[in-house]
Amino acid sequence: MNTKPNPIKRILNTRGMGGALTAFAGLIVIYIAFGIINPTVFSGQNIMNLLRSMSKYLLIGIGQSYILITGNIDLSIGSVAGMSAMISATLMTMGVHPIAAILITLACCLVIGVLNGLLVGKWQLPPFIATLGTMFVARGVAYIVNGNRNTDAIASGIGKEAADTFGNFFYYGSTLGIYNTFWIAIALFVVFFFLLSGTRTGRHIYAIGSNVDAAKLSGVSVLATTTKAYLVSAFCSCVVGLILCGQAGMGNMEAGNMYEMYGVAAGVIGGVSPLGGTGILLGTLAGAAVWQTLENGLNMIGAQVGIQRLVIGIIVVVAVFLDVVVRNGAHKKKPAKTGAAKTN
């Protein structure tokens, strides 16, 4: 009775694949549309730039998607990225070796992740409020580490050569013709994709997002799972902060501002439900690409920043709207279908 569907069908039937494929289809349409208006969009250099600037949104989107799938939200993402940029830059201007600086930065960011996990998973604070708090805390730390001002160039502490290596690793360098930033993002994407779809932790993340009571009664630790999700989010934010630091060659106190919302947008455009329990990272990948292509394309055709924001805002609402319509439509249609089958 259990006929195994063929592999392609199985992949298409994967939960959340619908949203992801829709986003990819939208991506292709948007990309070609901009390309027709301005063929420079298709140029090799533009594709390279596109992939690189998309990487930040992809990483942010991965972190936020993990949280959205647990049914929560993480507002601290942008501030943690800013904190990451400021801590790492401050340390390097003080002459700390880049690798040591990265490790210390990572540790600090993960502390915020654990804190979010405890507040939401253990003490049951509403995630919106808990991470609103940590958002301000992390931004505050970003301001304080260098005494309320942006840092000097990191080259001033660790020397030009090391600063260039740092900048190349995270932003300016390329491998096999593609910027390193993209390779970093894709490598982490693969790791976190697998963590979510192929491991126990991933299953638990979906389970608490779908029905936290049932998950608890199945032996899932809500605290551990929530904390792991917030750790993933903090880790991704940390990497984005390092990329921002590498790009600027210094620390900017306002780095990563609003990124948490870009993460929500990337996830939601890609079919990750903000209500928890559904969505796949492939969708987030498509969502981040849609976002960046829109920004890039609107830029290339000379639209003002205001217009860019406006269009992107509309796209997010339309994406969620379609999702809701499709979902409700599926619910309403079902009884009619079975009814028809009976009369036949």
Partner: peptide, 13 residues
């Protein structure tokens, strides 16, 4: 519905 199933997830899950 409340305690037994994650209704958004598959039977396999």
């Amino acid at each position: 519905k409340k305690d037994g199933l994650c209704t958004k997830l598959s039977i396999r899950h």
